[in-house]
């Protein structure tokens, strides 16, 4: 968290979002970065206050949502969510089950497209490209926004083929060996598997499988890595390895992590967003502030265990 303070605030030049599919976004300024526009979810006055922007709006936002609603059929899963997720930070999403954390995560790389009845309203930008614009190819988007799932889901192929999968489907097969090795090293798995890359990935332990899934996700060099409760199916030792890994990954990638474990959110994240029942983003702030002095009474109740 200390690195937040060392950054300077990005310029907020109000430009219209371009329609590029995969953001080139070096000047990814939020089109209208007035704080009051960003905060329209929280009746308690939390969210992005003026002070918060000064202290921690340190890097350019990679993912920006404004008034995002997601429906599954008649059920509303996200209600008017507005958030700016900064680059090269770990942003945690916490909240009770069914509150829309995972839905938000899946909106970012359009995995909700795979659900026929899902419908998205509102604005969601990746860098300066609108994610749900007609001309955005979800395949191209997912190449920029990688994902790690709750349960380790390696393909029933060899370890090598698992890591190489993303590169192969994208046709980036130059120097495959080197990229596979580098990805496995970044995922802190190389030492454990370098002598058995040809063996099937399903023979690894759960923690190793999850790190393999992370290696697989970073092999294609995305901008953002979404993690949907990546450690919830793992034991404490494996969890601790994954957490160390996340901290390292934040140096080169933007990490958005959904977790049920509030201690985990407190340990690893720079920013925390608290979703509560009904798909409402109640408070979004620096992690220290959320856990030590939340603006909203409901958030405090949730974090201290008085509420659900």
């Amino acid at each position: 968290m200390s690195r937040d303070t060392t950054q300077t605030e990005s310029s907020t030049d109000p430009t219209e979002p371009s329609t590029d599919t995969a953001g080139s976004g070096t000047d990814a300024a939020d089109p209208s970065a007035d704080a009051d526009q960003l905060v329209d979810t929280d009746p308690g006055g939390g969210g992005l206050s003026e002070r918060e922007r000064r202290e921690t709006a340190a890097t350019e936002p990679v993912v920006t949502a404004r008034g995002l609603d997601v429906y599954y059929g008649d059920t509303q899963a996200l209600d008017d969510v507005s958030i700016r997720i900064p680059a090269n930070r770990v942003t945690a999403m916490i909240g009770p089950s069914g509150c829309g954390k995972s839905t938000f995560l899946r909106s970012i790389n359009r995995m909700n497209d795979l659900v026929d009845i899902a419908r998205v309203d509102g604005e969601l930008f990746f860098q300066d490209a609108e994610i749900y614009a007609d001309e955005v190819d979800p395949v191209a988007l997912r190449r920029q926004v990688g994902m790690v799932f709750q349960h380790p889901n390696p393909f029933p192929k060899s370890i090598y083929d698992n890591v190489a999968y993303g590169l192969r489907v994208q046709g980036r097969t130059d120097d495959l060996d080197a990229v596979v090795e580098e990805s496995l090293r970044k995922a802190a798995l190389w030492e454990e598997v370098n002598d058995r890359l040809d063996e099937t990935a399903t023979g690894l332990s759960g923690g190793q499988q999850q790190r393999l899934c992370i290696a697989r996700a970073i092999a294609v060099d995305p901008e953002v890595i979404l993690m949907d409760e990546p450690a919830s199916a793992l034991d404490p030792v494996a969890t601790s390895k994954i957490e160390d890994l996340i901290a390292e990954l934040a140096e080169s990638y933007t990490v958005v992590i959904v977790t049920h474990n509030m201690q985990q959110a407190a340990r690893i994240s720079d920013r925390t967003a608290v979703f509560l029942t009904g798909g409402e983003l109640v408070e979004y702030d620096r992690t220290e502030k959320i856990f030590e002095n939340p603006e909203s009474q409901r958030v405090e109740d949730y974090i201290t265990g008085k509420f659900g």
């Binding site: 395949v139 191209a140 889901n153 029933p156 993303g166 489907v169």
Partner: peptide, 27 residues
């Protein structure tokens, strides 16, 4: 074929056909 494998494939930027060809059909 488990849905999680399809999602993993889509999540890495595979097209629908690539997912079918490389993940679903072999299984």
């Amino acid at each position: 074929v488990p849905d999680s494998l399809r999602q993993a494939s889509y999540g890495m930027g595979a097209t629908r056909w690539q997912t079918i060809r490389r993940v679903v059909l072999p299984q």
